[in-house]
Design a protein around this nucleic acid. Sequence first.
DNA 1: CTCAGTGCAAACCGTTTGCAGAACG
DNA 2: CGTTCTGCAAACGGTTTGCACTGAG
Lengths: 166, 166
Amino acid sequence: MTTEQASSPFIRLFSRYLRDLGLPVTHQREAVAQVVIASDGHLSVDDIEGALRAGGERIGKATIYRTLDLLVRSRLVEEHDFGEGFKRYEHRLSNNPIHEHMICVECGTVTEFESNELYRVENRVRTEHGFLPVRRRLEIYGLCKDCQDAGVELTKEGLICPIEIA
Amino acid sequence: MTTEQASSPFIRLFSRYLRDLGLPVTHQREAVAQVVIASDGHLSVDDIEGALRAGGERIGKATIYRTLDLLVRSRLVEEHDFGEGFKRYEHRLSNNPIHEHMICVECGTVTEFESNELYRVENRVRTEHGFLPVRRRLEIYGLCKDCQDAGVELTKEGLICPIEIA
DNA sequence: CTCAGTGCAAACCGTTTGCAGAACG
DNA sequence: CGTTCTGCAAACGGTTTGCACTGAG
């Protein structure tokens, strides 16, 4: 759990990226990168700050934001916004090149899944609209199995069928 | 373009919603609702405020936010976040019950399209993960036809293939 | 040594909230 | 008339930025 372990492949890739751009490879940048790679979840900046502090590092939020910006630009890390009012970050090493998210509106748990149907959607968009897809985002919000088993019901409010006349 | 025209079906539905909840139907609420229904685009709060001002109304931002909250809860209006740092709002009358968005990363234009493939995805999520879908969001970011025709190229930066070793 | 990075605190900006006065029912 | 709304301005919270100082190359 220390942030001082010998450089992982991820850190090495990040260092290379920085060096290619002529940017210094600082201790702080390595530490932030290390935290992001060490987790397989979707980290908030507070999560990252907490993990750093737990590892004995004391790095300012500004530096964390600035480093995350570099990580996102290097494409080693992906930025997510699940509508919580802040961003979350996830490394892009190994597994699912395309991975979508289902988010439980009750407990907030984020689970990933794959959807090859999206290829079809992108092809249609390309041929039918002449649109060139680069990046996509599919999020399904609902109730996870655990919450359903726990008896959670979704309370619908609002008009049942607003679509009537035009 | 006046906000004082006889109540449209939309306004009537909204009034009914408010009355059902025992809430007053105020002039401001009708004016905000009128602006949202009068546009077929994706409005920011500033857009709405501007349209109100252009119509001779002077309504505070706080009231606009509070009214939008009611409109969203009534399900007459949908809230979107395209990652611009603020929200956009779109009425849900008529057309596409399911409509996804493709967003041009160059000019910001948002175009809607339908994707029945999503039904399949939701079914899979339900059967494979026991997840109960309620709401979904699919956004495809890329280059619209106009920007491609105008010769816009996407400059890739970052590591080409970060996925190597684990 | 020099130039970029870091930390702190202040600035930012979209959104929310508290409160005195106005309006709905 | 009591209750809710409105408008203003101040508060909020995540993120960004300016600046003096530290550290990488």
